[in-house]
Simulated assay, not measured.
Amino acid sequence: MKFPVDLLADVSHTELERLAHNYMNNLLYSNPDAPEHLTLPDSTQVTINICSVGFIPLYGSSDKQKVLALFSPTEPLTAVALYLLDQWWPVDDILKTADPARDGAVEVETVGERIVLYILNRVVYRAREMSSEELPFLCHGEKDHAKILWSNGEAVGFYSVKPSGSFSNSFATRSYQLPVMDSIFVRRCQRGKGFGLQMLEDFVLSFKEDCLGLRYPLTKPMYKVCEKYLRQFPGDTDLLWEVESVGGPNQRTNMASKIQAMDHSVSRSLSFTEESLVITEMTEKDVVITTQIQDAESMECTVEIVVHYYYYFFKVEKYEFEKQRIV
């Protein structure tokens, strides 16, 4: 079975939109007492009528190219299916491919790939998986440089790039001073499998410049990805930079230096029992380790214990304790 990304390889957006308008015209004159229904992969049935469908812009604020979407009563602002080539496709099927050659990071070029990128960004990330602490990505434009990461017949993530010399969305008269990874996303169900590192490596291999940028602010998981990359390629300490705006000389922070500076301390807590001094240590994986020191004599001291790990943002504290005698 082929999926939209396979079927739309040689189809123009004009043809796609023409078919959608024809469908809408027929839907206007259909029998309202006998509507169609679409069954989603989770067995939910969605009624298809003039009130549940509408055109959505594929490239954000630009309404030049649109696709016809179906909305359910429980998700009135989020598409659950798209009308493509005379057929309704649930969004989960739009993220699949039957082409075994479509594997790894594949550049977005066709209309079908642009639609997959839209679903990953606007539906999967923004509507389903974005946390309250994260900022939404802007819609990808028709000319944006992006790659979709495919694995085992599914789109598992994407990243987009602003090449050096391209103009900034915020500053139309200013261009990027270096290639910048503008966005990167891995689906929640696919995390922990090294896909973020795979896309970062692909980004590095795609450009010849001596400096490459990563859009500020990075998420904590992305800092971890960068740390893994720099451990794997220690010779690239001057290659990756966290950048703001267009990445001018004063808008860059070296990633290797920043990661080292983020080597914060994990503190250990100390407490007393009647028989022993108990040291409780929180490890990198949040596993509690308890150590007992037996036969302790009376003591009066100040102890500062510092354990270093990357990305753990705990405050270093001094523990002062005083005990006349431990029995």
Rank of each mutant, 00 (worst) to 15 (best):
G165F: 05
Y309E: 13
L138T: 05
V11D: 11
G165H: 09
H308W: 06
Y309L: 04
S131K: 08
T280S: 09
V287I: 13
D202M: 07
P76Q: 07
V67E: 11
S132W: 10
Y216E: 10
G248S: 10
D10P: 01
A69Q: 05
T291Y: 06
E15W: 05
K323A: 06
A34V: 05
V180M: 15
E154I: 00
A146T: 02
I305R: 04
P41L: 11
D99M: 08
S276Y: 08
Y216A: 05
V53L: 07
C139K: 00
S267H: 09
L117T: 02
F137Q: 08
W88D: 14
G153L: 00
L117N: 11
E322N: 09
E209Y: 05
V266Q: 03
K193L: 15
T237I: 02
R252G: 03
V225T: 14
A155P: 04
R268H: 14
Y312M: 03
N22G: 10
A79G: 07
H264Q: 15
I56H: 06
K64V: 03
T97M: 06
P4R: 10
V278M: 12
Y159I: 04
S269M: 03
T273W: 02
G196A: 13
S151P: 01
R188M: 12
G54H: 11
E133L: 06
E142F: 01
L77V: 02
T273A: 12
P221E: 10
V186D: 09
V266D: 09
T47E: 15
L70Q: 14
G248A: 15
S298F: 04
P76A: 02
Q251T: 02
W150T: 01
D103P: 00
Y29H: 15
F313G: 04
T273P: 00
E129V: 00
L40N: 13
R231N: 15
H13D: 15
S175T: 03
G60H: 04
